[in-house]
Simulated scan of single mutants.
Amino acid sequence: MVLHEATLFLDLDGTLFELVDNPEDVRADHRTQALIGQLLQHMDGRVAVVSGRSLAQIDDMLGDAAGTLWISGSHGCEYRWDGVIQSPSRPAALDDVAASFRNFAQNQPGVLVEEKSLGVALHYRTAPEAGASALALAQEMAGLHDLYLQHGKSMVELRAGSENKGSAILTMMAHPGLAGTTPVFAGDDVTDEPGFEAVLELGGHAILVGEPRPTLATFRLRSPEELREWLWRATV
């Protein structure tokens, strides 16, 4: 796999960064920011983030490095590249969802609410016993407000739109700056499977980061740390 001839797509949580109990605690350290800079130089700028996080959250996580990347946030609903931003309006129903999720979390120690520009998530990583109740509430609210229910690792999210990381990758790969290159996508969660499918359809490579599980990915790295070290070696 030769990266300097490819376009690299990276998920963030659980892929470039380790999963943590509180999603708001994730920040790129100096070494990770340096890695992003090295990748951009090695690949002539063809480095993209494809994340369920919002554009604003990605900016907070990556700092100055975010401004130089191709970015799709909110599971393919938001985009930014070459200074152009595409972001739909936030559905008013998400305010009702956020209130319901906060009420739920108040009575479930360890459950966290994450509000995004186009979604609201319930995280129960430190309270796995709350998972079934969280899913039931999310299903109820999804039906009530006609929102998309997104499953993930120890979380459920209600969000606008039915786009996914696969549609995000296909949209970006159609851009003249990326078209004709070989896509490589690294991800860890079930939310990344549409992205794996997309890069394989385009003749690219899919990398699962983390423990073995049923997946479309054709390569696997054991952890975000192993991914970062592999990326460093690939830029030498």
Rank of each mutant, 00 (worst) to 15 (best):
4 H>K: 14
15 T>S: 04
18 E>W: 12
18 E>A: 14
20 V>T: 08
20 V>G: 00
20 V>H: 03
25 D>Y: 03
34 A>W: 13
35 L>Q: 05
40 L>M: 14
41 Q>E: 15
46 R>Q: 12
47 V>Q: 02
50 V>H: 00
50 V>P: 00
51 S>P: 02
53 R>I: 05
55 L>C: 04
55 L>K: 09
59 D>G: 11
60 D>F: 08
62 L>Y: 08
62 L>E: 03
66 A>R: 13
70 W>F: 14
72 S>Y: 10
75 H>C: 03
76 G>E: 01
77 C>V: 13
80 R>G: 15
82 D>K: 07
82 D>N: 03
84 V>K: 11
85 I>D: 12
89 S>N: 13
97 V>R: 14
101 F>S: 07
101 F>Y: 11
101 F>K: 12
104 F>I: 09
106 Q>T: 15
107 N>R: 15
109 P>Q: 06
114 E>M: 00
114 E>I: 01
117 S>D: 07
119 G>M: 12
120 V>G: 09
121 A>Q: 01
124 Y>K: 02
124 Y>N: 00
127 A>Q: 10
128 P>C: 10
129 E>M: 12
130 A>S: 09
131 G>R: 08
132 A>E: 14
138 A>Y: 14
148 Y>L: 06
153 K>A: 03
160 A>P: 06
160 A>I: 09
161 G>E: 12
164 N>F: 11
167 S>K: 09
168 A>W: 00
171 T>W: 08
173 M>D: 03
173 M>T: 05
177 G>I: 01
179 A>T: 04
181 T>D: 10
183 P>E: 10
183 P>Q: 14
192 D>S: 11
197 E>A: 07
200 L>I: 12
204 G>D: 03
205 H>A: 13
206 A>D: 02
207 I>L: 00
209 V>I: 06
210 G>Q: 00
213 R>W: 02
214 P>D: 09
219 F>K: 15
220 R>H: 10
220 R>M: 10
222 R>Y: 00
224 P>W: 11
232 W>M: 02
